[in-house]
């Protein structure tokens, strides 16, 4: 039964990682930038959600929507102010800027809310409940997290595959100049990508707060890093790769905890990443596509 317990834990943790990893991979896919500030967007989302629920007395779903909207705007502003001017400079310049944005968000937040952790309000009613099947304890909040995550992933998939802006996003990520020749406004498309990716991180931040209760200005670091690992794991730039990688990281982490390696669970995750990259450098689903000329 222990295995099934870890499976349900891994599934809910993996869902949160998946939402973060999607943002990483979408941004990488479109401008080849590892957006190291992405985890901090999650942190801002967690705080917006916390503020909405405590000070503004919103319910969970309204807080989630507010956090997503705030993060979408934040993501677009970050891109326009920090990354766009560097579009044609070296990748290392953009990467270092991303680290700068990350530190900026962390310490500006710390200035306003202080370094001490804040607590999400206690879950009430259905959310606080749990049930047991054959000795496996399933918390209702876990099901809610999995449900919301899957719903958001389906919506994302529909946007990317079916809509005009989704097609533009895919076109730009494959060949920006060719996309320009189709009449696609590349700058706007990149902004939309940041908005969507950041909104998903905002949702992940609120769910992180609901699940783990305690939030602080540096909380984005570890989930951000692990979601980045997940994205690389699956093959960075690929949406299915990010999902696969995120659930893999979630399972590896909870299984490591389940077998008594709680202290070392992060080490296990990164060890597996190193092994995967030695065997398949492009990630699980990544492949070196050869183009005909």
């Amino acid at each position: 039964m222990e295995v099934f317990q870890q499976l349900i834990n891994g599934l809910s943790l993996g869902s949160i990682y998946a939402l973060i990893a999607l943002g990483y991979t979408m941004v990488y896919g479109i401008i080849q930038l590892i957006n190291f500030a992405h985890g901090d967007v999650l942190m801002v989302g967690a705080y917006v959600g916390w503020f909405s629920m405590t000070a503004l007395h919103m319910n969970m779903f309204a807080a989630l929507a507010t956090a997503m909207a705030a993060c979408a705007v934040l993501g677009v502003v970050i891109e326009r102010v920090a990354y766009k001017p560097l579009r044609n400079s070296t990748r290392i310049a953009a990467l270092i800027t991303a680290i700068g944005v990350s530190l900026f968000l962390e310490y500006v937040m710390m200035y306003f809310v202080g370094a001490n952790p804040k607590a999400y309000p206690d879950l009430t009613g259905f959310m606080a409940g749990s049930f047991t099947i054959h000795g496996v304890i399933i918390k209702n909040i876990q099901l809610v997290i999995i449900g919301i995550s899957v719903l958001l992933m389906i919506i994302l998939q529909l946007i990317v595959q079916r809509t005009r802006v989704g097609k533009a996003m895919r076109a730009v990520s494959q060949d920006a100049d060719a996309a320009r020749l189709m009449g696609i406004n590349v700058d706007n498309t990149i902004s939309v990508t940041f908005a969507i990716g950041s909104a998903l991180a905002g949702a992940a931040g609120v769910m992180w707060g609901l699940y783990y209760v305690s939030i602080n200005p540096l909380m984005g670091l570890m989930p951000g890093l692990k979601a980045f690992v997940a994205a690389v794991f699956g093959g960075i730039g690929l949406i299915p790769g990010a999902l696969l990688g995120a659930y893999a990281v979630g399972f590896i982490e909870t299984i490591a905890k389940g077998v008594g390696l709680s202290t070392y669970s992060d080490a296990v995750v990164f060890l597996v990443l190193i092994l995967i990259l030695i065997i398949k450098p492009a990630g699980l689903l990544g492949k070196n596509t050869k183009e005909k000329v």
């Binding site: 005009r164 097609k167 533009a168 076109a171 494959q174 100049d177 996309a179 189709m182 009449g183 596509t289």
Partner: peptide, 18 residues
């Protein structure tokens, strides 16, 4: 410079994007 990871139909649809 066609979009290699998109279908022929999607490539053509992108042509009429504007």
């Amino acid at each position: 410079r066609i979009f290699t990871q998109m279908t022929v139909l999607e490539n053509l649809e992108l042509g009429s994007y504007r």
